[in-house]
């Protein structure tokens, strides 16, 4: 029983990171009805930027803020240059374009930061905390990750429910035509959605880098997890992305603990397939995923 609890505790940190990544997919889906498969590419790119800032200034905090800004900028650039010009009825084209961006970003990162996998310096103690006579499988760093995730979720919730910008965003996502007639500058609001998602993804990247390594392809598996989580959560539900994200982190930790970490992607895939068979619209949403 204590091993079970240990595995659960150990999965909290990675669950929070997966939840953040899924959140960035959800933010873009809500604003522009596109699943941004380039999201992990953007996060990888901004994490490399953060690594450069960290080596240059020596401050993890400045690196985090830098990644946040770079993520927003990259999101705006991609939305403006790539996704906005795609024809609205060409859904295949939008999906393919995001994969094109992913391939290009990974190649560009390989050019700018050569040398394959690189370690990201550990900003906080990542050893298990000693408390009440034993070592717990959760570290100071895990608490930092969970704290930052909670802060971001709180901020986004306040933004969407308490500000006029959040109201415009919801209106533009719900019905762009009517929103436009009501005076919402829809295209500007959509671009802001991409900026927001880029920042959230960038934070996820900076948070995951110290506990793994960073290379142009190292976040690919995170894309699979994040997509799984976003879909099970319903693709446009913030609370769905967060709760399913943490849940998936726990499942991955349990699977890795009791069997082998190599089984985790397979289990995630099974979860996704099961969800798409039984409840393709997701647990937290009511919109239609099936077309026929």
């Amino acid at each position: 029983m204590t091993t079970f609890l240990d595995y659960l505790l150990g999965g909290l940190g990675s669950g929070a990171i997966i939840a953040l990544m899924a959140l960035s997919l959800v933010l873009i889906w809500r604003s522009t009805r596109v699943v941004n498969f380039a999201q992990v590419g953007q996060a990888m790119f901004t994490t490399f930027i953060a690594l450069s800032i960290q080596t240059w200034t020596g401050s993890w905090f400045i690196a985090l803020v830098g990644a946040l800004a770079a993520g927003a900028l990259l999101g705006v650039i991609i939305q403006y240059l790539v996704l906005r010009p795609v024809k609205r009825n060409d859904t295949s084209g939008a999906i393919i374009a995001t994969f094109g961006v992913l391939i290009a970003l990974q190649a560009a990162a390989g050019m700018i930061w050569p040398g394959g996998s690189q370690a990201f310096p550990q900003p906080f103690n990542n050893a298990g905390i000693e408390f009440a006579g034993r070592v717990w499988p959760i570290s100071v760093y895990d608490f930092v990750v969970i704290g930052i995730t909670a802060l971001l979720v709180l901020g986004l919730t306040l933004l969407f429910t308490k500000t006029s910008l959040g109201l415009s965003m919801r209106a533009a996502a719900f019905n762009p035509e009517v929103a436009k007639l009501s005076g919402v500058r829809v295209s500007r609001v959509l671009t802001f959605g991409w900026a927001l998602a880029g920042s959230v993804g960038a934070v996820a990247g900076v948070l995951v880098a110290p506990v793994s390594t960073i290379s142009p392809n190292s976040f690919d598996i995170l894309l699979v997890y994040a997509f799984t989580v976003a879909v099970i959560g319903g693709l446009d539900s913030l609370i769905g992305a967060i709760s399913i994200g943490v849940f998936t982190g726990l499942v991955i930790s349990l699977v890795s603990g009791y069997s082998d970490s190599g089984n985790a992607p397979i289990v995630a895939l099974l979860l996704l397939a099961l969800n798409l068979i039984l409840k393709p619209e997701g647990v937290f949403s009511h919109h239609k995923a099936r077309s026929v």
Partner: peptide, 28 residues
Amino acid sequence: WIGARLRGPYLAGLTLGIAVGLPAVATR
């Protein structure tokens, strides 16, 4: 059978998972 009833992004994501997950089966 799983994928054909799904709209674009869902199918792309499912098959992405398969592309990553199925080769991993070989290592198991």
